[in-house]
Design a protein around this nucleic acid. Structure first.
Lengths: 266, 266
DNA sequence: GAGTGGTCTAGACCACACG
DNA sequence: GTGTGGTCTAGACCACTCA
């Protein structure tokens, strides 16, 4: 345990920016810089550590990518306030119910929606012909008014005629499915990986473009196993943890739009 | 589809480094720079775009974080060759079987192992008293000799006496469990999130520290629902996708260490 | 030793926020 | 306008790889 070099301890390979990053990082962890508070500006940090501006900026870039601070141009650099949401992925996964179970207030914002021919990947997932019409809904999901997800939903038009009309009446997919006689549905498969967001994704998720996101693609099916929806989206990397369970408790099959509260069961 | 330029919409805020990054990115995507090949060195890129070295380096930093190129000091910058592994997470998740199913050759490398008192989180996960002895095994997982995972496994010593002895004989946990009379076990829960790796994690996963990893914590239980293992590790962000399924096909319960091949079942 | 990337400095100017 | 961060340049020197 006494290796020559180090990963983060003594790293005097002329690594001044590492020293600065680590020092600030520790000061954040130990509360010297409280969550939400502003860091000293670049000039102050330069003087405090006796380094050039580039060195300071290199250090801060690392803290941004790690999600520890957030930079607001013209205003300053602020300590990121953490609040990780555990989002459950199980046989029955429901956005609204999940967040309420975490004691959060869920909401959604439609961004765009249109009918389009199904591209290969989506057609395959939905078990329809390539080019068959699908209805795409692009939306953002929020927890307590903070954006946590952004992505596109695809429904086969053949199965859900006029879905665009109902889409404007309800924010709950569960409610909409009910209109089509689908009282229950389950998650068939979920693919999760990580990558950096595009500039637009970062903006819509209100996170720095240098911080990674979780990308998710999923297929929902009805109780007969027929695919009813394909989704492709990104989730704020610093604010979300996915919790996967396989032993599925059927649970009640309510449509919880806004009526009953129910919160906190941790 | 004819926006002015870049997705950030009108963003020519003097963004030379963005232009350079995007141009190189497109040249990689279109095959001008083939996977594995070396990019022009910094001086050449400077001249080609008529920009300073810092600008070139800023652009390359973005490509590194996105996993598109890999920089080897003293040798050059190379186009990353992609090969994403889809790792299945289901009721029955087995490392070796998963990789063989993807047509890869699985292997593992023990790094360290020791007996220790269970810290709070691990004790809670394993349903044992805090401080009760657990056996920790630190290891790396490989697919085709390329590192893909790195983490720690914890087993309750009370349930698995002398597990350290058997650990040196077999690389397959499934095989070891069999020695203790456990012929089957299932995944109880899995937590997944993303973050940047530590310097050590990046080194062990042979990936740049600027590229995100997938972090996973999981609990395995026996068929009576008793926890038998807790794991905490990281997976190479650029090489792994997790595929979660809930409709679980029991599947055969073989112990596939090295004997029978079996590959490709997609 | 030649070539390639890594770190650092000093300085200039631009863009954005806020009063 | 003042303050804060964002971009860019020019140049120096260090560290690593490979012949």
């Amino acid at each position: 345990m006494k290796r020559a070099e180090t990963e983060s301890s003594g790293r005097p390979q002329r690594g001044q920016w590492r020293a600065v990053e680590e020092r600030i990082s520790r000061d954040i962890a130990s509360g010297v810089f409280a969550p939400g508070s502003r860091l000293p500006n670049e000039t102050e940090i330069m003087q405090r550590f006796g380094v050039g501006r580039h060195t300071v900026r290199r250090a801060i870039a690392g803290l941004v990518a790690a999600g520890k601070v957030r930079v607001e141009q013209g205003r300053g650099t602020f300590v990121e306030e953490y609040s990780v949401i555990r989002y459950s992925i199980a046989l029955r996964t429901r956005f609204n119910r999940n967040l309420k179970g975490e004691g959060r207030v869920p909401s959604g914002q439609p961004i765009e929606d249109l009918e389009m021919p199904a591209p290969p990947v989506i057609a395959a997932a939905l078990h329809i012909r390539e080019g068959a019409p699908v209805y795409m809904i692009q939306r953002r999901g929020f927890a307590d008014s903070i954006p946590i997800s952004y992505g596109r939903n695809y429904h086969p038009v053949a199965r859900f005629p006029d879905i665009h009309l109902r889409r404007r009446e309800s924010a709950s997919m569960t409610q909409i499915y009910k209109d089509y006689g689908i009282t229950d549905y389950v998650r068939h498969s979920t693919t999760i990986f990580t990558r950096l967001p595009t500039a637009e994704e970062a903006r819509l998720l209100a996170q720095p473009p240098e911080q990674p996101v979780l990308a998710m693609q999923k297929v929902d099916v009805d109780l007969e196993g027929r695919p009813i929806a394909y989704s492709d989206g990104v989730w704020a990397g610093g604010r979300i943890q996915f919790v996967i369970t396989h032993d599925d408790q059927p649970d009640e099959m309510h449509v919880d739009t806004t009526s009953h509260e129910r919160k906190g069961n941790d």
